[in-house]
Amino acid sequence: MKSNSSSLIKLFILQWLAVVCVAQNFDFFYFVQQWPGSYCDTKQSCCYPTTGKPAADFSIHGLWPNYKDGSYPSNCDPDSPFDQSKISDLSSSMRRNWPSLACPSSNGFTFWGHEWDKHGTCSESVLDQHDYFASALGLKTQLNLLQALKTAGIQPNGQFYSLNSIKGAIKAGTGYTPYIECNVDVSGNSQLYQIYMCVDNSGTNLIECPVFPRGRCGSSIEFPSF
C-alpha cells in the first residue's frame, strides 16, 4: 500500500514537472501584427467587431512563445483558462488594438481567449494572464509599423511595393528585421498580411529573430487600403 502511494506521488510530481518544463522552456516570442485590409480582402472576407470598423492600422494577432528550432509549445495549461475579469482594465485598449475580424461579429473575448489558451499558457512562468496581454499592448505602442512604412513612402493604397523595401522600412523604423507573411486577395495577388517581430522570453525587449517562420512572399506585394 505504501509502495503504491509512493509511486502515485512520483507520477504526480513527474506530470507536474512536465507541465512546468513545457511552460518555461521557450526561447523567445513572435509578436505578430496583421493588416486588417489584407485580412478582409480575401475570398473568406471578414466581419467587423460589434463595436464597429477598427482603425486603419495594424492590429495585434498574438504574442507566441517559440523555440529556436522553429517549433513552438501550445495549450500548455488546461487548468488556467482565460478569465476576462483579469483583464477588465485592459478591455478598452484591447478592443482598439486587438480586434477580432473573424465572422460572425464578436466583442473579441473569444479571440483573446483562444490566444491565451493556446499561447499565453505556455509563458505563465514569465507572464500571468494580465501581464501577457499588457505586454502585447505595450509592444504595439512601441512598434508603430504603419508609421515606419509611411515614412518610407509605403502607403496602404492598393499599390504594389517590393518586399525588400517593406522589410527595409520596418528595419529602419524599429531597428530590427521583420518577417513578412503574405496572403492572397480575391484577384490572386500577393498582399502584405502579417508582420512578425521577435521579443526576448521576458516579453519585453525586441531582439533579432533567432529563426523565421517558413513561407515566402512574392518580390512585389500589394498593400491594400482598409
Rank of each mutant, 00 (worst) to 15 (best):
S123Q: 07
S123K: 03
S123P: 13
E124H: 10
E124T: 10
S125N: 11
S125R: 11
S125M: 14
S125I: 13
V126A: 08
V126F: 15
L127R: 06
D128T: 04
Q129E: 10
H130L: 10
D131G: 08
D131A: 07
D131F: 11
Y132W: 08
Y132L: 07
F133Q: 03
F133A: 05
F133V: 03
F133L: 06
F133Y: 06
F133H: 05
A134K: 08
A134G: 09
A134Q: 12
S135L: 03
S135H: 08
S135D: 04
A136C: 05
L137Y: 05
G138V: 09
G138T: 05
L139K: 02
L139G: 04
K140A: 04
K140F: 10
K140E: 10
T141A: 01
L143W: 04
N144F: 06
N144C: 06
N144Q: 13
L145T: 01
L145D: 02
L146T: 04
Q147A: 01
Q147H: 09
Q147P: 12
Q147Y: 12
Q147W: 11
Q147R: 08
A148D: 10
L149R: 00
T151I: 06
T151S: 05
A152S: 07
G153E: 02
I154K: 00
Q155A: 05
Q155I: 02
Q155W: 07
Q155S: 09
P156C: 02
N157A: 00
G158K: 00
G158R: 00
G158C: 00
G158N: 00
G158L: 00
Q159D: 12
F160I: 02
F160G: 02
F160P: 03
F160K: 01
Y161Q: 00
S162V: 10
S162L: 08
S162A: 04
L163D: 08
N164L: 12
N164F: 06
S165Q: 15
I166W: 00
I166N: 00
K167H: 07
K167D: 07
G168N: 06
G168E: 07
G168P: 13
A169T: 02
I170L: 08
I170Y: 01
I170K: 01
K171T: 14
K171M: 11
K171E: 12
K171Y: 13
K171V: 13
K171R: 12
A172H: 06
A172T: 11
G175Y: 14
G175H: 13
Y176C: 11
Y176K: 08
Y176G: 13
Y176N: 13
T177G: 07
P178L: 05
P178S: 06
P178M: 06
Y179C: 15
I180P: 04
I180W: 07
I180E: 09
E181A: 15
E181C: 14
E181P: 15
E181K: 11
E181Y: 15
C182N: 09
C182R: 05
C182I: 14
V184W: 15
V184G: 11
D185N: 13
D185G: 13
V186T: 15
V186P: 15
G188M: 14
G188L: 14
G188R: 09
